[in-house]
Amino acid sequence: MRYETWFGDIEVELEEGEYEDPSREVRRHYRDSARETGIAVKEKDYIELLKEECISLAKTKIKLKAEEKEKSIERAITTMEELGDATNSLSEKLLDWYGEHFPELSLRREETLEVIARYGSRKRIIESNMDKKIIEKAKESDGIELSIEEEKILRRFSKSIKEMRELENELEGYVEENIEAITPNLSSFIGPTLVAKLLSLSGGLKNLAFMPSSKIQVLGAEKALFKHLSRGTPPPKHGVIFQHPAIHNSKREIRGKLARDLAAKIAILARVDYFSGESRGDLIKEFKDEIKKKEKQK
């Protein structure tokens, strides 16, 4: 019988009926068979070689999984952005609408949404145990009346917006957590939000890992770059990495240099994340220290 093992296929002859389950017998002798094959001659070699094999197998599978995940993350990011825009514009609409009914209610946006969802009409607010001042305002309001039907719609509307916000938060959590898992080093260096933007601009970690740092530096500034090439305007100094506090908080004169430096470090960490995925706390600390030092230079 042939048996498949990590050190190659082995041929084992066992007497008919000698063992209830021959494969168990074979598995008892993996180390011996490996030695006989000349793979792991010393006892300790066996574990060492097997481990190497299993680590490389695990890494390959992790990489595949991570690439798969990147696609759902990308969807999650675009959904999150659209959801953000939509909830903003819808809550504007709701607030305008409700403003006709209770123009005197001067609360912050989120609070107003909460009041609408909880109570709806001024009548209910007056009957509630809310803040005295608000109840006073409701009594003296000269907004138009709400029909029962309208009240029902506005309350439902407000609840829906709240739910959309919750979904947005959930998406954000999902994105951050998974970005951190895929790019442990980059995320700890510049934060998952900026990493998410770099990934979507570059088309994924693999692309980012193979990208020269000069290109990373201007990712997200494609328009300016195009203008520079076609019309000879000054080249862009930085793209989306401008959002990194080290750059936008520093003096104009050193921003270009800082951006170049940051991009070079991002390129290295993208490669570490793509090729090994190992957390390199030491390297990140060194990089952060260097950037800090440069930020302070005149």
């Binding site: 680590i55 695990a58 890494k59 999984k65 898992a181 442990p184 190992e278």
Partner: peptide, 13 residues
């Protein structure tokens, strides 16, 4: 699960 696996690989090194 790939997320814990990643840490397990590091530990095994």
């Amino acid at each position: 699960s790939w997320k814990p696996m990643r840490k397990l690989v590091e530990l095994s090194k």
